[in-house]
Amino acid sequence: MAKTILVVDDSASLRQVVGIALKGAGYQVVEGCDGKDALTKLDGRSVNLIISDVNMPNMDGISFVKEVKKLPNYRFTPIIMLTTESLEAKMKEAQAAGAKAWVTKPFKPDQMLAAVAKLCLP
């Protein structure tokens, strides 16, 4: 059974590139364009990993992580936060909320794949 990854970012091109890379590596991909949208994708389906941007409209990454941690069926899902050096404070906040993994923007698709593989191989 292929592993499913939820990719949450407000940039369609980022979701697209990350999606292509992940699918190429053998994962299934579900997309969410912001926190609020992403929560609607956690509808009972099996999700093995969540990749989420920090800074998004509607619901930002931190609030999204906090919401995920409240969902009985998803509260232990590993979460990779997309961060930048300039968002160090936000990153700490995300870690405190339980999102311990991160990838620093800008990143190359390979760097994302390496981070994902540490948490779940396809």
């Binding site: 091109s13 980022l14 923007k105």
Partner: peptide, 9 residues
């Protein structure tokens, strides 16, 4: 942020 992040990809 988004323009930079996606450019990196």
């Amino acid at each position: 942020h988004t323009i930079k992040g996606s450019a990196g990809l």
